[in-house]
Design a protein around this nucleic acid. Structure first.
Lengths: 221, 221
DNA sequence: GCGTAAGGCTACCCGCGAGTAGGTAGGCGG
DNA sequence: CCGCCTACCTACTCGCGGGTAGCCTTACGC
């Protein structure tokens, strides 16, 4: 009985700090994406990472810090992916098209990153929600710039049926929602997804430019 | 000092159960919408409701039960509001228009309901997320039915640039996103919001029917 | 070889908040 | 006017999980 053999000391091999940090962040993103910030426990993250809890605290700080690190890393990845997809000297519609394709490629490849950024980041009150909202706002403004530049170039001014900001907000929401939908339909390619949105938005937009406006066909209420 | 007078017994008046349940649900929706499911505490809910904690457990059960009750009540409200806004014997585009207006009226009037349904309900793992997802799926299918009915009526078949399901997912996402945007812009009326979406979607859709399709203007990658 | 620092762990603390036990008060039937 | 049922409260328990104190152990420099 004294022969305990609790574990033949399957002690993790000693690895450089940078590698461990990567492992921990990967595990954290995975767990956060599955359970959300609050329901995720540090114990589970440490288990998935194959590392004990104090390591996390030594390397990445508190739970909130850890989550922040995840958010920032994944946000940077996403931003870079989209940035690399865009060809800045093309006309606005082609820029939007390439941006959308890059976005959908990213979402397909890094589902967990997308889940954490889109669904979980809002649930942590305060600082992170603000950070994410900011990033989203920047995305909306980026799109709005494209839309407005195309609009004014074509002579579309201020009119009741048109609002660059509102339209962009709607477009970004549509893109996100379609991303979620695409997660359940992996057979639909990024090109097709981007085409759907372009056809939705850009064609309707062109109609507006030409004064072809949808109106309710009867009294207002 | 023996004159304690801790509270002059500002004991709540005895009220019928139904009334208390309403108060508790109202308080719960408010608190959940502010803090989210996990960060909301039963103590705070009871305080806001003006009732002690055991009451909540006697009347509405556990925290999860309580949240479920909130979700169901608000979802029913929303559904009814939209249902009542729709006039079923109008053409598809007018149905969509009226549905959207009713939706934005609801969001403006019951911000907290919307917040709970849209942002918080997903963060509770398992049953509720599924419930909400179901409701959202039904909404998408409803919209898809309108779109497809209009599409087939006009002779639009299966083509690469068209997918009723995908398009509807995008539209619902756009509507939700625009709802969030509208919360920060209360001066924009529900009619205007609905018009924006109609102009986005319906006009682009009509173009598709007429074979006017957006295509990338150069090689595929 | 041998000191020492960096990688790693086990085993604990402790506060917060979900949930409850047990008691009090007010109204209504008799 | 008296009991008793129901609305209602104060004051607790207790487990979960974030965070830490303190120790071990391997590799590398000299």
């Amino acid at each position: 009985m004294s022969e305990e053999v609790p574990r033949p000391a399957e002690r993790a091999k000693r690895l450089p700090r940078a590698v461990r940090e990567r492992q921990i962040l990967d595990a954290a993103v995975s767990v956060f994406s599955r359970y959300g910030y609050h329901s995720a426990s540090m114990d589970e993250i440490s288990e998935v990472a194959g590392v004990s809890k104090p390591m996390i605290y030594t390397y990445l700080g508190s739970k909130e810090d850890l989550f922040g690190a995840c958010i920032r890393r994944e946000a940077t990845r996403l931003l870079e992916a989209v940035q690399n997809g865009i060809k800045p000297d093309l006309p606005p519609d082609m820029q939007l098209w390439h941006g959308l394709r890059a976005f959908y490629r990213f979402v397909a490849e890094y589902r967990e990153s997308w889940t954490v950024l889109h669904r979980q980041a809002m649930t942590v009150g305060g600082a992170f929600a603000a950070e994410i909202t900011d990033m989203r706002t920047r995305a909306i403004e980026l799109v709005a710039a494209l839309v407005v530049s195309a609009g004014t170039r074509k002579g579309l001014g201020e009119q009741a049926e048109f609002s660059g900001a509102g339209l962009s907000a709607a477009l970004v929401g549509a893109a996100e929602s379609l991303a979620d939908w695409a997660l359940d339909h992996p057979d639909v390619s990024d090109g097709v997804l981007a085409s759907w949105l372009m056809n939705l938005v850009w064609l309707g937009f062109n109609d507006l430019v030409e004064g072809d406006v949808w109106k309710p066909s009867e009294s207002d209420d």
